[in-house]
Design a protein around this nucleic acid. Structure first.
Lengths: 116, 116
DNA sequence: CAGCTATGTAAGATGTTGCTTACGCAGGTG
DNA sequence: CACCTGCGTAAGCAACATCTTACATAGCTG
């Protein structure tokens, strides 16, 4: 859980994750997508992703092929689901008990214009 | 996006987020749930959460009440959705073109026992 | 207004991250 | 076997994150 979110917190690692999302790529080929940084740096990012279970490694001859591992995201997905589901429950209870003043509920609804 | 995941990467901040998930709590009351660390430390965590848009602050007299802000998670949710949706698309294309050897597809399915 | 409470901010110590260069090693190729 | 290619690891360094203690500030309360 902790390692997963820490791994995802880095933009380079998210970019790598998108790269190996559809295709299975060799480490060097992945590194070639990041000309701004050295190849060992990318290798270290790949290690973090592998430790977090977000990618799988398949050795193929001289190469090491990386592919996205969907189950690696399961705990983050679970965390989000827990957040959202609990949220609905809280809204329901609050509405039933009418614990909040009306203007508070209105403000809460109003702030949810983006995605609620 | 970046700030959100960085904010979520810390276990203390996730705990805070769960605390203010249902109730609206004052900073001091939140800090009281973390006897192992000082009150300013919690205050700084609250700042990170607020900067990431994951909580909203409502000043009430002498207090500062914190509440979870659901929309703050929207970009993370979008990231996950993009991952999963693209994943389904990739599976579909691969299955149609039969690009992978059968044992590869079996291995992929087999590793998804946790949550797929 | 004096003083108390609740809270944020500043400064600094310490651990952690993310890079670099240099090196080691496995695996294919002549 | 000698050698090249592809990759990971080690060591070192600069930047950043996370604590601490000390201090500043806003708002009640008598």
């Amino acid at each position: 859980m902790d390692g997963t979110l820490r791994a995802l917190a880095d933009p380079t690692r998210r970019a790598i994750l998108r790269l190996v999302h559809d295709d299975e790529l060799a480490a060097g080929e992945i590194a070639r997508h990041f000309p701004a940084m050295s190849r060992p740096a990318v290798s270290q990012h790949l290690r973090v992703l592998a430790d977090a279970g977000l990618v799988v490694i398949r050795p193929a001859g001289n190469l090491r092929l990386y592919r996205w591992r969907p189950e690696g995201l399961s705990d983050v997905t679970a965390f989000l689901a827990q957040m959202w589901s609990g949220r609905l429950a809280a809204l329901k209870t609050a509405a039933e008990r009418e614990e909040w003043p009306a203007r508070e509920r209105a403000k809460l609804r109003g702030s949810g214009e983006a995605r609620d």
